[in-house]
Design a protein around this nucleic acid. Sequence first.
DNA 1: CGTATACCATTGATAAAGTCAACAGATTTT
DNA 2: AAAATCTGTTGACTTTATCAATGGTATACG
Lengths: 172, 172
Amino acid sequence: MAVQKTAEPRSARTTEAAEAEEAAAGPERLMAAELADEIEFLTARARSVGSGRANIALKELDLKVRSYSVLSLACSDLNPSQRELADFLSLDPSQIVALVDELERRGAVTREADARDRRSKVIAATPEGRRLYKQAFALVRTSEEHSLGELSHEERGQLRALLRRIAFKSAD
Amino acid sequence: MAVQKTAEPRSARTTEAAEAEEAAAGPERLMAAELADEIEFLTARARSVGSGRANIALKELDLKVRSYSVLSLACSDLNPSQRELADFLSLDPSQIVALVDELERRGAVTREADARDRRSKVIAATPEGRRLYKQAFALVRTSEEHSLGELSHEERGQLRALLRRIAFKSAD
DNA sequence: CGTATACCATTGATAAAGTCAACAGATTTT
DNA sequence: AAAATCTGTTGACTTTATCAATGGTATACG
């Protein structure tokens, strides 16, 4: 119904500018701006669309990328502590508390006191947590596939390697 | 359960590990986790550290990456409307209102009614806004330089190109 | 023509996320 | 043993995100 024709943005033939390119129209007319060359802006936008999509996909499991990330790390055999989760996920320790609370309430993870340092608690996934993770992983996988669809396997490798270097710069 | 094995958990100064470089220990023990291979996670973390640093740098001008981005686009000669800013920056239109309000209050940008479509307002930078942008750009530049320090010029080009493709996927 | 529909900027309400200080228990340092 | 540091936790508070509703404007359609 009523195809909204986007009303020819700003480049409407202004008598004089007739020969100009015929409106790249899209919402991406601004790609010509200087900002669009800044890697940090592109990173921010990429993550926005990516995690946005992932959140939608995860909704059917009542998860968000945040809780998914915690669950994922809990499923690793690395026995992360909450502090490590906070550092790794760039979150405040208090936010981890809430996320673990929720996952624990759902029976997906457990807090077990670390024998070596009784201050910290290691987060581990329950069998049920692992089942949940499997499903979530599949959804995220599909979502990511959708987001990175245009990139070849090799290009993804490049991108991953580059991002890893800026995401985990040594202390400074 | 009772996984007391797990090789070398956290500290445990096992006599033999002494010769190794004193534990890469860092908060990045978890890089071995599956999550660390997901591009979207890396993207999220990269933008977190990046915009975090940029925000700190911009504080001396009383700007944030958000307001800086708006200002930057206002300084382009593209005459963006608020709607376009919202789309481009992945923000809600109502957030743009607040950001433009602030910049306008500071005399950095103006809202001028679009002659072609009186619903929309084009955001343009004042001379003072351009001066402010110049300073901000320098700060962001330095900050970004600090974040991407390890990447060669060529690698930055690759990264930029790859990010652009996933940040601006056509509609879907 | 006029009316219905869609759009833009704006406001306001509400939820989610981020930031910070303080605190108890545990560990390390001195 | 005392001081200093760390971990998880709570709570207050700010910022950001999300969504519905509205007035003014433009387009579509009959």
